[in-house]
Computed example of a mutant assay.
Amino acid sequence: MASEIDTSNRDPNNLNAHLGTLLFDDVIGEPDGTHSIICVWKLSHCCFEFWKGLCYKLMTFCCGCCIAAEWGCEFAYIAFWHIWYITPLFKVLEINCSVCQRLYSMCINCCMTPVCEAFGGVFHHFKRI
């Protein structure tokens, strides 16, 4: 069951922390020696903050629910495929690969081990001078 929605902390996992500090000073800056009139600077700051907030609110009002629905469907689709296809497929691969591993082990033990032991017995008698 979904937990209750926290309307004050809307990003509890800090998914978009990099956007939380997107302020006027992070986008627009006038270096020393190149300054606009103070009233233009202050008005620019007010306009930036106003339009950033207004446009965000309009876009979320117009598109937010539809986009949230689309993402909900997308994650439902992902969950469906993982639960009903991918995880069972991994189980099939695990079962089949364990059989292949046993077959490979038997072939190595039956064919290669006697050959290696024979060569080991031959070379065991050689001594370093």
Rank of each mutant, 00 (worst) to 15 (best):
1 M>H: 11
3 S>F: 06
4 E>S: 13
5 I>S: 07
5 I>N: 03
6 D>S: 12
7 T>G: 02
7 T>M: 14
7 T>P: 00
8 S>A: 15
8 S>H: 08
9 N>G: 04
9 N>S: 05
10 R>C: 13
11 D>R: 02
11 D>H: 11
12 P>L: 06
13 N>F: 11
13 N>Y: 06
13 N>L: 09
15 L>W: 03
15 L>R: 03
16 N>G: 01
17 A>G: 15
17 A>N: 14
17 A>I: 05
17 A>T: 06
18 H>I: 07
18 H>C: 10
19 L>I: 07
21 T>H: 15
21 T>C: 05
22 L>T: 06
22 L>H: 08
23 L>A: 14
23 L>T: 15
24 F>I: 00
24 F>C: 01
25 D>L: 02
25 D>Q: 13
25 D>Y: 02
26 D>E: 15
26 D>V: 03
27 V>Y: 01
27 V>I: 15
28 I>K: 00
30 E>G: 01
31 P>E: 00
33 G>T: 03
33 G>W: 05
36 S>V: 08
36 S>H: 12
36 S>F: 06
38 I>S: 10
39 C>Y: 05
39 C>L: 11
41 W>R: 01
41 W>Q: 00
42 K>N: 08
42 K>H: 08
42 K>R: 12
44 S>W: 00
44 S>Y: 00
47 C>M: 14
49 E>K: 04
50 F>N: 04
50 F>C: 07
51 W>I: 06
52 K>I: 00
54 L>T: 04
57 K>P: 00
57 K>L: 09
58 L>A: 13
58 L>M: 13
58 L>I: 10
59 M>V: 13
63 C>W: 13
65 C>A: 15
66 C>V: 08
68 A>K: 10
68 A>N: 15
68 A>R: 13
70 E>S: 09
71 W>R: 13
73 C>F: 07
73 C>T: 08
74 E>M: 11
74 E>V: 02
75 F>M: 09
78 I>M: 07
78 I>Y: 03
79 A>P: 00
79 A>D: 15
79 A>N: 15
79 A>K: 07
80 F>H: 09
80 F>E: 07
82 H>K: 13
83 I>N: 14
83 I>F: 08
83 I>W: 02
84 W>Q: 09
85 Y>C: 10
87 T>N: 14
89 L>Q: 13
90 F>D: 05
91 K>M: 12
91 K>H: 11
93 L>V: 01
93 L>M: 15
96 N>T: 04
96 N>H: 09
96 N>V: 06
96 N>W: 03
97 C>K: 06
97 C>M: 12
97 C>I: 04
98 S>D: 11
100 C>T: 07
101 Q>I: 07
101 Q>Y: 11
101 Q>V: 03
102 R>G: 01
103 L>F: 11
103 L>T: 08
106 M>T: 08
107 C>I: 12
108 I>Q: 06
108 I>N: 08
109 N>G: 02
109 N>R: 04
110 C>A: 15
110 C>H: 06
112 M>G: 01
114 P>D: 10
115 V>T: 12
115 V>F: 03
116 C>H: 10
116 C>E: 12
117 E>F: 04
118 A>W: 05
119 F>L: 14
119 F>Q: 09
119 F>V: 11
121 G>M: 05
121 G>T: 00
121 G>H: 02
122 V>L: 14
123 F>C: 08
123 F>H: 10
125 H>W: 06
125 H>C: 14
125 H>E: 11
126 F>R: 05
126 F>H: 08
126 F>A: 09
126 F>S: 09
126 F>I: 02
129 I>M: 12
